[in-house]
Design a protein around this nucleic acid. Structure first.
Length: 870
DNA sequence: ATCCTCCCCTAC
DNA sequence: TAAGGTAGGGGAGGAT
């Protein structure tokens, strides 16, 4: 079955498209069933049509086959009036509530019926017994995969790699922000000075020769960070072999479709290369054994990864990244402790603020537990020796965080880093210039930063395993072997030379969101929904840093044809083929809809089978900051809205009218005199809600602004502080309130903005992140109050208010506050029904359309609300 | 020469 | 069961 879909001109035709698609697919099903009529084995499921929701056993594909062969019908989409049964093994509560009125049956109903050769009573297989107040799931809760709407956030909440990555960014930004504050007082330096005065003679650490003109770089690295932070609250485990992991050491369950042996062999084959030539080379040079992390794992060993292990565990050969099953074989007494993300954040924050506030701003953040600092100023002002600084600083960090760290000191980046390796655990090491040559000779090539598995192996095939051996190769040899840049840095680094500068100034070059875990989709709907969520995530991250991206890159992991259907690791990606494809826009954006459109085009062009997907990543490159020129961000946003980027890529059909995505056009005429000026005092818009009702001041301001352009719909830019209802401000969180106040203040003098009212009955929700965030935090009751006032007092609905309400409701739904949204829609319906006005009814349908779209995206179901005014 | 895309590698 | 993310550097090879 092809998934090529016609261009749909954005999303406004989504509903119609869905209908068409349903019919098409069902037609195909019937045709297929007819074609395969010689395979029909029975009519057990005559009259039954099923829709499979979520992950099931047997799989949806299997169930489809069973239905086809036995007289039943399989629906790719849930069709409330046609689908007779929904098949599911588990449903999240939100989904459950929505689908409550339908027959939701466990897949065993199908398999048992098939086994017995007759249709069994589905009532014995209901997923839950409908007790009105508390639907109870009669099934053990199973792990979620990415087809569930809550998967993404749960995954991010539990992913150590995601945490590591986001924390690194967080602290790079913290350094940036702190440096801007221009602080001049460093109390730590004074403490160090005092300590030196009291202890120098006793320490005998001072050495005149250490005071030279070289730059002094210090590298600080917490010792086995996750373990140390975890042991703060479990001191009884100190001194024991400890590892941090998700697993509890249980044996892994045997699952259908898993073949660890086959999967592991594929990895080994890819890693070794397939040709004999390589094998000969390896023997000739006595290559050190290369192990995959799957070594020593059998069918039931735990496949969880060890994120971090204590030095006691390392002594017996356990390493970070090793699988729990194997580690337990090496050390059956290994203590497994769970993650404690909050604690890691706390410790890391303490570490950073201590150094930044008390010692220096010349810090390069590497990660949550690792940083470089330029000691020049500290040493100059305190007259301390590098070792004294290291001892003192390490001691303070240990006191503050209760976690040990190690520090290395050297004249450059590389030497500082290598010194730390030597210092560990819980120590310090100053790699003095005089000993660098000797020191480097014996450094293992794999300890050089930048030399990993692949480069290390390649070097070992050349018979090289230490820096000393590497330094025998000429620059030319290295460059022809590894490329110009890689060759040059190998040449320098093995000699202890490194001219990289500490980078204090963090400027992101790309933003991405990847998930390569839990990706198991039954159909294109599920994968689309998930991709949409990833696009939203990317948009959020771009907005966080106030940047837009100009190139979209899609990264896919697809099950390799030879790989077992199910991965060895539970919900893992298994052995995959990787695909990367990028597409450039004419104008940078952060708009998730545009990103999705691009991504979707690529997906369709690649014709990916959604069931074979194992990983998805979306990346934005060529970042541009949203330059603030002139009046400010909002102004800039409005000018951005005038023309959203066109997609410039061969994949993209030229007929695509991307402008249709944005139906609310904004322009800013220089001296536009509106003909509707006389309406302004009668006209009510959402913004008027922010005004106190009897505020003379605001009336005056409105009058005085009559000379400017006043149009039916004001944008945020037009609101003045004095117009804002104080109770609205109170409803906002403090930080948001401050932001709003500042933005309003900075726009007091701005010209009014004209928002063109579209005649099109179709409305698309496109608001600025700035303004939608504001609405997001309006309390539910406040919003109900507004809606009542709006509908009751307003003659006709305005587009901008429709948009605001839609956006608000969509935000509620995506925040899983579906019930609140439901209540508001009911209220809106009642109000509009009373009003009995065509334009208002249209307004209701427009809003509902947006709501149902997001419902379909998130829950694959519509909200059950009134769809006609009888 | 320099840029772009599609990778791969590395680090935390 | 298990939570295999994310940013940056760079090489190969083709387009400009």
């Amino acid at each position: 079955m092809k998934r090529n879909r016609k261009n749909t001109n954005g999303f406004e035709k989504w509903g119609g498209y869905m209908e068409a698609k349903k019919t098409k697919l069902e037609q195909q099903f019937t045709e297929k069933a007819t074609d395969d009529s010689n395979h029909v084995k029975s009519q057990i499921f005559k009259g039954i049509s099923i829709f499979v929701n979520g992950y099931t056993l047997p799989s949806a594909n299997e169930l489809k086959r069973i239905m086809m062969e036995n007289g039943g019908v399989y629906h790719h989409y849930h069709r409330p009036n046609i689908t007779t049964h929904i098949i599911a093994s588990n449903l999240p509560t939100a989904k459950l509530k929505l689908l409550k009125q339908f027959k939701i049956v466990k897949p065993e109903w199908i398999s048992d019926s098939l086994k017995d050769g007759k249709l069994l009573n589905y009532e014995n297989y209901l997923l839950f017994i409908d007790k009105p107040n508390q639907p109870k799931i009669d099934f053990p809760v199973r792990a979620k995969n990415a087809s569930e709407p809550t998967f993404l956030s749960e995954f991010y909440n539990n992913s150590r790699l995601h945490l590591i990555s986001t924390m690194a960014t967080t602290f790079k930004r913290l350094v940036n922000d702190t440096r801007k504050q221009n602080q001049t007082d460093y109390p730590g330096r004074q403490r160090l000075k005092n300590w030196i005065e009291q202890n120098r003679v006793k320490n005998m650490l001072f050495n005149d020769s250490e005071l030279d003109n070289d730059k002094i770089i210090m590298h600080i690295d917490m010792d086995c960070f996750f373990v140390s932070a975890g042991l703060v609250e479990r001191p009884e485990l100190r001194g024991l072999p400890v590892a941090v992991t998700h697993a509890k050491g249980n044996l892994s369950k045997q699952r259908e479709g898993v073949d660890r042996g086959t999967e592991f062999n594929l990895y080994v084959k890819r890693w070794r290369g397939d040709d004999d030539e390589n094998d000969e080379e390896e023997e000739a040079h006595e290559i050190r054994p290369r192990s995959t992390k799957r070594d020593g794992i059998n069918e039931t060993d735990s496949m969880a990864e060890i994120a971090c292990c204590s030095y006691e565990a390392r002594k017996v050969g356990i390493k970070n990244g090793m699988l729990v099953g194997r580690a337990l074989k090496m050390c059956p007494t290994l203590k497994l402790i769970p993650y404690n993300f909050e604690q890691y954040k706390k410790v890391a924050h303490t570490l950073y603020t201590h150094i930044l506030n008390d010692y220096t701003l010349d810090v390069e953040a590497v990660s949550c537990d690792e940083l470089y600092l330029d000691c020049s100023h500290i040493l100059e002002t305190t007259k301390a020796s590098p070792i004294e600084l290291a001892m003192f600083l390490r001691n303070e960090i240990k006191e503050k965080t209760q976690c040990p760290c190690s520090t290395g000191i050297g004249s450059n980046y590389l030497l500082a880093r290598l010194a730390t390796k030597k210092a560990k655990p819980d120590g310090q090491f100053y790699l003095e210039p005089g000993i660098v040559m000797d020191f480097m000779k014996n450094i293992d090539i794999l300890d050089v930063p930048g030399v990993g598995r692949t480069l290390g192996h390649k070097l070992s095939t050349l018979g090289i395993s230490t820096c000393g051996e590497l330094s025998a190769l000429s620059l030319q040899t290295l460059q022809s072997e590894f490329g110009n840049k890689t060759g040059l840095s190998l040449y320098k680094h093995c000699r202890g030379e490194d001219d990289r500068k500490l980078n204090y100034d963090y400027k992101p070059k790309s933003v991405s969101a990847d998930v390569n875990y839990g990706i198991r989709f039954q159909n294109k709907e599920e994968s689309d929904n998930f991709v949409r969520q990833l696009c939203n995530e990317v948009e959020k991250r771009l907005d966080d840093i106030e940047m837009n991206g100009k190139t979209v890159t899609l990264k896919l992991m697809i099950r390799n044809a030879e790989a077992p259907k199910e991965s060895a690791k539970f919900l893992g990606h298994g052995f995959c083929d990787n695909i990367t494809k990028s597409s450039s826009l004419t104008k940078s954006t952060s708009n998730s809809r545009i990103i999705f459109q691009v991504v979707n085009k690529i997906m369709n062009q690649l014709d990916i089978d959604p069931t074979e997907l194992r990983g998805i990543g979306i990346q934005m490159n060529k970042l541009e900051s949203r330059i603030v020129t002139g009046p400010g961000r909002i102004e800039n946003f409005i000018s951005n809205m005038k023309s959203e980027p066109k997609i410039n890529h061969t994949l993209v059909n030229e007929n695509t009218d991307n402008d249709k995505i944005i139906l609310t056009k904004v322009s800013k005429p220089k001296s536009h005199q509106s003909s509707s000026t006389e309406n302004i005092n009668k006209s009510k818009s959402v913004m008027d809600f922010f005004k106190p009702k009897e505020d003379l001041n605001s009336k005056n301001q409105l009058k005085s602004s009559n000379s400017k352009s006043i149009v039916p719909c004001q944008s945020l830019v037009n609101i003045k502080m004095s117009q804002v209802d104080p109770s609205f401000l109170d409803a906002l969180p403090a930080d948001l309130r401050l932001k709003l106040e500042n933005e309003l203040k900075s726009h007091e003098n701005l010209n009014s903005t004209f928002i063109e009212n579209q005649n099109s009955p179709i409305m698309e929700v496109t608001m600025t992140e700035e303004s939608s965030k504001l609405y997001q935090h309006v309390q539910i009751d406040k919003m109900k109050e507004f809606i009542e006032e709006w509908v009751v007092t307003e003659n006709e609905p305005k587009m901008c208010d429709n948009i605001m309400v839609s956006k608000y409701l969509c935000n509620l739904i995506s925040d899983a506050k579906t019930e609140d949204a439901y209540e508001i829609i009911r209220k809106l319906y009642r109000l509009i029904k009373n009003k009995d006005d065509l334009a208002w009814k249209q307004s209701y349908f427009d809003i509902l359309k947006n709501v149902q779209e997001i419902m379909m995206n998130l829950y694959n179901a519509k909200m059950k609300v009134e769809t006609t005014f009888k």
